[in-house]
Amino acid sequence: MLALQSYLTLAAIVFAIGVMGIIINRKNIIILLMCTELLLLAVNFNFIAFSYFNQDITGQIFVFFILTVAAAEAAIGLAILVVLYRNKDSIDVQELQTLRE
């Protein structure tokens, strides 16, 4: 018997992996974006699980919007990344330190 907790636990694991990815990664900003996608996937998992077990379509609607926003975010993030690479000739996270000044 699959309970809600199974799905939630799975989502929690995926979420934690995404978090770890953000912390570990120091070289490639694209990986950061991918980890963000992982985090969003974990959240979507929760929504769909709750939607199913609560018999409520709203959770799925929410996922729909999250997917939309995530797609937009990915597009804009990648565009910024391209501009960044064009200007700094690097996507190394360790070199992105201008905020410090």
Binding site: I17, G18, I31, L38
Partner: peptide, 9 residues
């Protein structure tokens, strides 16, 4: 899913 997620990072 868990394995591929680990693979991502």
């Amino acid at each position: 899913l868990v394995l591929t997620s680990l693979g991502v990072i």
